[in-house]
């Protein structure tokens, strides 16, 4: 019960934050929940969202329409609570939803180089989210790392994991290597100015 109240409190705080996301991001999350937890899982998350007082009809979400980013975040947090997911599951959700999204289809032709794909990904960030910015800080193919930042996006610490999953997936798809790691080296929720992610591979 205390968890539920806590989620409601989080929801109230999130609704005060400005920013919108394209419906495709939310639909991608529901599609992943359907694949992992089935229709019963979808119904459970919808119920939870309704309990939290969101007036959005999930069945009518359109891929290119704008919806509050707070709602998109709440879908992830609600799923985490309903299915008692761990942090790794949220990370995995970020990874898997990247595979099957509109952005992925747009980025598909840039998957021949990591620099190219993340340069385009930062452009698509702005097309699919009107809050925050994704930037490449440094890329070094010789030393095999790329440093990225997300600025101006501070919704919930769990979303740091979700975004880390997404970025790792893009790198994996591009490099076709299994030994790729991602680490959040700076976090706005830990007192830093922005989120910073270091991806390195062998």
């Amino acid at each position: 019960m205390s968890d539920q109240i806590s989620l409601k409190e989080i929801s109230q705080q999130l609704r005060k934050k400005e920013g919108n996301a394209r419906g495709d991001i939310i639909l991608g999350n529901f599609s992943y929940i359907r694949q992992k937890e089935g229709e019963v899982g979808i119904a459970a998350v919808k119920r939870k969202i309704k309990e939290l007082g969101y007036p959005i009809n999930v069945d009518k979400i359109k891929p290119l329409e704008w919806y509050p980013e707070s709602f998109s975040v709440m879908v992830i947090l609600a799923a985490k609570e309903v299915f008692q997911w761990k942090d790794e599951d949220v990370f995995e959700m970020g990874k898997q939803t990247t595979k099957h999204s509109l952005v992925m289809k747009m980025l598909i032709k840039y998957f021949s180089s990591l620099e190219m794909v993340f340069t385009e990904a930062s452009k698509y960030w702005e097309k699919y989210l009107d809050v925050g910015k994704l930037k490449i800080i440094k890329i070094n193919n010789k030393e095999k790392f790329i440093l990225l930042t997300i600025e101006g996006y501070n919704f919930h610490p769990d979303i740091c994991l979700y975004h880390a999953g997404k970025m790792l997936q893009i790198a994996q798809l591009c490099l076709n290597k299994k030994d790729i790691r991602i680490e959040e080296t700076k976090c706005a929720f830990k007192g830093d100015l922005h989120h910073e992610y270091l991806i390195n591979w062998k």
């Binding site: 992925m104 289809k105 598909i108 998957f111 021949s112 798809l173 591009c174 490099l175 076709n176």
Partner: peptide, 10 residues
């Protein structure tokens, strides 16, 4: 669809 390295993307 795959990239030139042979990774399935779609």
């Amino acid at each position: 669809f795959s990239n030139l390295k042979g990774v399935i993307l779609e």
